[in-house]
């Protein structure tokens, strides 16, 4: 109970503002009743979203688990709609987190490897800067042609986008490790591997945290972009598929899901990383835009 109260004290204004935003949306839907196509309002009100729209999502259930799909001739149902949401969300998340994991590990490893010597770092810095500036989202078609429009293509794309950020982030962070910590460890008898494990990794972590948050934003953008441009399932697929029929209400529901998942992933990461960083004097809040 006290926890709930504390939560509201801390986030009270935010919750009120979100509530007001929802109310404004409703008012707009009542005032601006134009329809994109007959029966599809440009601004779907909440009464539509939570009834007709929700149930219509059963279109995206592929069948199985004893719940037949609409394509098989079954009538739309809330069960099928719910299963559609869960299965498509899972598809998107698996692509996202697998890409994030692979990209993060490969990027960090390459970044640490390149930082081993001053010369290797200086060699990669300029080409890396160029590669970073290449607009990631414009490269979706390239990855589709290389890795296919199925699972591998999307994971590879997310991993590439995340990997580049990690690589650059790690190279830069290692460069910024205060020399006195390295000197201190060396005079105490640390060897190269110990230096990496006990000094360099922990001292780059605060900077890496900003990198990880940034890459979370990039990963969400990348998985969406990849799903927009060719997928048979996933939240991004539902959005573009609905767009083709101007089903604004379905797009709206899925967009809300996206916001919900993205916020949760940021919040969880923030919590975890702050715990790991309790040695830091003060950890500034990092906000990302993706």
């Amino acid at each position: 109970m006290t926890e709930v109260r504390a939560f509201f004290r801390r986030h009270g204004v935010s919750i009120i503002v979100l509530g007001v935003m929802a109310a404004i949306w409703q008012i707009l839907s009542l005032l601006y009743t134009t329809e994109a196509v007959p029966g599809e309002p440009m601004i779907p009100g909440w009464q539509v979203v939570f009834t007709r729209t929700l149930i219509s999502l059963s279109d995206y259930w592929q069948g199985g688990l004893g719940v037949p799909s609409v394509a098989e001739g079954a009538p739309p149902s809330y069960t099928a709609a719910l299963l559609a949401i869960v299965s498509n969300s899972l598809d998107t998340m698996v692509r996202l987190y697998l890409g994030l994991l692979i990209g993060g590990l490969v990027g960090t490893f390459l970044g640490l490897a390149v930082s081993w010597s001053k010369w290797s770092r200086r060699t990669v810095e300029l080409p890396l800067q160029f590669i970073r500036t290449l607009p990631l989202l414009a490269m979706v078609p390239l990855f589709q042609l290389w890795f296919g429009i199925y699972f591998a293509g999307k994971v590879a794309f997310v991993a590439y986008g995340v990997g580049v950020i990690f690589f650059a982030g790690v190279v830069n962070a290692v460069k910024n490790v205060p020399q006195v910590y390295i000197d201190n460890a060396r005079t105490q008898g640390a060897n190269r591997v110990q230096l990496y494990l006990t000094i360099i990794l922990p001292s780059i972590f605060p900077e890496l945290r900003a990198t990880i948050l940034l890459s979370l934003g990039t990963a969400w953008g990348a998985v969406l972009g990849a799903e927009y441009l060719g997928a048979q399932s996933g939240l991004g697929y539902i959005i573009v598929y609905s767009e083709a029929f101007a089903y604004l209400d379905r797009m709206f529901v899925v967009a809300l899901l996206f916001v919900f998942y993205a916020s949760i992933s940021y919040a969880i990461f923030n919590r975890l990383s702050l715990k790991l960083l309790q040695w830091m004097p003060r950890v500034g809040r990092v906000i990302v835009v993706g």
């Binding site: 503002v17 935003m21 440009m42 953008g221 767009e243 604004l248 906000i287 835009v289």
Partner: peptide
Amino acid sequence: DPIVMTMGTIPILVLAPFFLIW
């Protein structure tokens, strides 16, 4: 602040299909 933070957390790309219709 809460409005912008929400905007900041959503992948901006989610909005693209909406904008294309609107």
